[in-house]
Design a protein around this nucleic acid. Structure first.
Length: 312
DNA sequence: AAATGTTTCAACCGCGTGTAG
DNA sequence: TCTACACGCGGTTGAAACATT
């Protein structure tokens, strides 16, 4: 038994919107302000449409501040960089691009930018890649099965490599489209010492891995079940002030998360093993992009959901 | 000019999440 | 605490537009 449909699909109009329908919806929103209940809107506005369809039409097309097409190089870089970092979190990516919608960004990536990114070259940076599996809103599972390490993950090269050091304040900027816990990765890091007390962050949107959650983990010197939400960065910081510098996936981690973890877990920054460990964690935090690049690069299929093998 | 293949993008679908009752 | 409902999201589809042969 499936979920009840949000509306009677047989009795509502579907397909492309007519100009009259657009005008009805536009004038309704104009006169009533923020829509409180999209399901009830069609009836009130005199539209024979599903409420979800109305919402989509408004958000993706009729909103006055929408931009269509004409993506700039800078926007390309933002999309590439964020996609590399957080994967297909289109609503988050779109929230960093004023006037762009998640649907638009998604279409743009799938039809143009992905090819462009691929064409600019793929190179390997990471020695080890461990897909962490289910991430984000759907089906996050800490009980996922560890799998053997796949081939090294290629990375797209969308922009000149640079480092990024967002200020702590930037971590508190608002992103309303995602909840804390998104882009989260559960992992165990058995070689690191138990983490010290963690710094306080402005809010929960960006929080470092949590301290050991089990007595056992603390007792044997490991820590477990780290969760991180990384769905928020300021665009100005992303584009590096002048807009001519951009973080890449690895650099994003090395530039921001790396030092954070080094500070928190006293990893020697100069040691190659520490670098390796950071790379492993990076791959765990931001797995989606690698997975896609990977598939596109005709490598073996990425592993199914699972904890980072070397971290378990 | 016609046929065929490819690309684009608006719209749909179904599921996870948040929340009010 | 549970349930029902609406919202929001990401993946997918399909028709139209465009390019190529």
């Amino acid at each position: 038994m499936g979920r009840a449909p949000c509306c009677d699909k047989a009795s509502v109009k579907r397909g492309p919107w007519a100009p009259e329908e657009d005008e009805l919806l536009r004038s309704y929103v104009r006169s009533h302000g923020a829509v409180g209940n999209w399901i009830a809107l069609p009836h009130k506005a005199g539209l024979n449409r599903c409420g979800k369809s109305c919402r989509l039409r408004w958000l993706n097309y009729l909103r006055p501040d929408i931009k269509h097409g004409g993506y700039t190089e800078q926007e390309d870089m933002v999309i590439c960089s964020l996609y590399n970092s957080i994967g297909s979190r289109w609503s988050i990516i779109a929230s960093k691009l004023p006037g762009r919608t998640d649907n638009d960004v998604k279409n743009y990536w799938n039809t143009k930018l992905k090819k462009k990114a691929m064409g600019m070259g793929i190179h390997q940076q990471q020695q080890h890649y461990h897909h962490q599996g289910a991430v984000g809103r759907r089906g996050a599972s800490a009980s996922a099965i560890a799998t053997p390490p796949p081939p090294p993950a290629p990375q797209s090269q969308c922009a000149p490599s640079s480092m990024m050091h967002p200020s702590p304040a930037s971590a508190s900027s608002a992103v309303t489209t995602a909840s804390a816990g998104d882009v989260a990765c559960s992992f165990m890091y058995s070689d690191a010492p138990a983490p010290p007390a963690l710094p306080h962050y402005h809010n929960a949107e960006f929080s470092p891995p949590v301290q050991p959650t089990t007595q056992a983990a603390a007792a044997n010197g490991s820590w477990a079940s780290g969760m991180m939400a990384f769905d928020d960065m300021f665009l100005p910081e992303l584009i590096g002030g002048g807009g001519d510098q951009f973080p890449l996936q690895g650099d994003l981690f090395a530039g921001y998360l790396g030092p954070l973890l080094q500070d928190n877990y006293r990893l020697p920054s100069s040691s190659s093993s520490a670098q390796l460990q950071l790379q492993e964690l990076s791959a765990c935090y931001f797995p989606n992009a690698q997975a896609e690049m990977w598939a596109a690069a005709d490598h073996a299929k990425p592993p199914p959901a699972g904890l980072c093998p070397s971290l378990t």
